[in-house]
Design a binder for these strands. Structure first.
Length: 250
DNA sequence: TCATTAAATTGTT
DNA sequence: AACAATTTAATGA
């Protein structure tokens, strides 16, 4: 590796902060201060960045790697809601009130995060209108994502769930990432989609045959994002999916 | 650089 | 859930 890893890491942290979408809303002085007050933290694969119940005192941006947001129940079962990867920010919901984390954030592989302290975040919220505009858009995008997840959960058969969960990782408002490649094992994709690993394996090859993505070892590459986003599979009439649940039946 | 090994991941039943 | 095959990563010559 590099002979000067600390300096290298610092510059990557700074580059990540300065290239983030909200940075454009800040004056040069404001941004310099944010850079000075923030720091980088490494989270080992499988380790916890924060866990449910702890006080929320940072806003986190992913420099490299992947965080999964999940809850583990007392009986050992675990439900994963969504994943945040390179370029994504997480935690604003719990920072906007004097809150505690309502879920766990676990690194699916070695992950580096930018940590913006609560007081820095609060200063921006109370002093910068453009930053608030960014936050509003960001939170709105997150709301859309979760509404989509409810639809996925209630309406769609396994292959479509996998397709849409992958698509949700590339929401342009939440994750302005550069590439179309995600390093996630099929097991982890299954957790995100609430589909068994075996069924995820089948689904990925179905989607590959249809030209929507490419399957690699320990990763996938998205080819047709709109196609994944709107994917509806053969048994979408409800006969073989979840029994009888419809969103539009008032 | 190459061969050997363990670990992780995939593909199939 | 179990098993075999494949890929990667780590180690040492």
């Amino acid at each position: 590796m590099s002979l000067v890893p600390d300096i290298h890491a610092r510059s990557e942290l700074e580059a990540m902060l300065r290239s983030s979408r909200w940075a454009a809303a800040l004056s040069a002085d404001e941004l310099d201060l944010v850079v000075a007050e923030s720091y980088e933290r490494r989270v080992a694969a499988g380790a916890c960045l924060f866990s449910c119940g702890e006080p929320a005192d940072h806003w986190y941006g992913v420099i490299d790697g992947m965080l999964k947001m999940s809850l583990s129940h007392a009986d050992g079962r675990q439900s994963t809601f969504t994943g945040v990867h390179e370029g994504g920010w997480a935690g604003e919901g719990s920072l906007l009130k004097p809150g505690i984390w309502r879920y766990d954030a676990i690194a699916t592989r070695e992950t580096r995060v930018a940590c913006v302290p609560r007081h820095t975040f609060e200063r921006l919220v109370s002093s910068n209108l453009a930053f608030n505009h960014f936050l509003l858009q960001h939170i709105n995008a997150r709301l859309s994502l979760f509404i989509g997840l409810v639809e996925i959960d209630r309406l769609l058969a396994p292959t479509a769930r996998v397709a849409r969960c992958i698509a949700s990782l590339f929401d342009p408002d939440l994750y302005p990432s550069k590439g179309w490649n995600v390093r996630l094992s099929q097991d982890e994709i299954g957790q995100l989609s609430a589909v068994s690993r075996q069924r995820t394996n089948q689904a990925l090859h179905t989607l590959e045959r249809e030209g929507l993505l490419a399957v690699e070892f320990g990763a996938i590459t998205v080819i047709d994002l709109p196609g994944l986003r709107s994917y509806v599979d053969e048994s979408a009439d409800g006969t073989s999916g979840k029994p009888g649940l419809r969103l539009h039946n008032a």
